[in-house]
Structures are given as C-alpha cells and as structure tokens.
C-alpha cells in the first residue's frame, strides 16, 4: 500500500507541474483539479494505513467544497468577471 501511496505522490508532482507551467488559465484549473483528486486519494490511503477513520470525514468535506471552488472559478471566468 505504501508503494501505491508513493506512486500517487509521484503522479501528483506531475500534475503540480501543469499548474506551474500551464500557459493558459484553463490548464492551471485542470492541473488544480487533478492535484486535488490525487491528494484526496492519498488521504484515503493514509486513513487506511493508519486505521484512522476521521480522515475520511476530511476527504468528504474537501471533495464537496473543492468542487464548489472550481465551479465558481470557471463560472467567474466564463461570465467575464461576474460572479
């Protein structure tokens, strides 16, 4: 299970690179979305390794609110600055 955790950590570095270099804003938003989902997977794996179930609550809250944040940013850009 630790191997999978390391693998996902390596993959999340790649999608973090998309945030840094991404030429347009949409690339950065996509990279952020990828990174968020990979971090959620990592936290779930961490909860399974440590046997602590309250980490799953955190993942639940983060997945709901991260979705709201991304939707708001793309809504903002598409409507040219009107929230």
């Amino acid at each position: 299970m630790e191997i999978i955790l390391g693998l996902i950590a390596l993959l999340s570095v790649v999608s973090a690179g998309r945030i840094v270099i991404g030429p347009s804003m949409w690339d950065r938003l996509l990279g952020f979305n990828l990174l968020a989902s990979k971090l959620m997977m990592m936290i779930i794996l961490l909860a399974a390794i440590r046997g602590e179930s309250y980490l799953l609550d955190m993942v639940l809250v983060y997945s709901l609110l991260g979705f709201v944040g991304v939707i708001f940013i793309s809504w903002f850009v598409q409507r040219k600055g009107r929230v």
Partner: peptide, 8 residues
C-alpha cells in the same frame, strides 16, 4: 488558483 493549490 495558486492560492487554492496552496491551501490544499
């Protein structure tokens, strides 16, 4: 977006 990733 950078601040979002930062807080994540």
């Amino acid at each position: 977006i950078y601040l979002c990733a930062f807080s994540l």
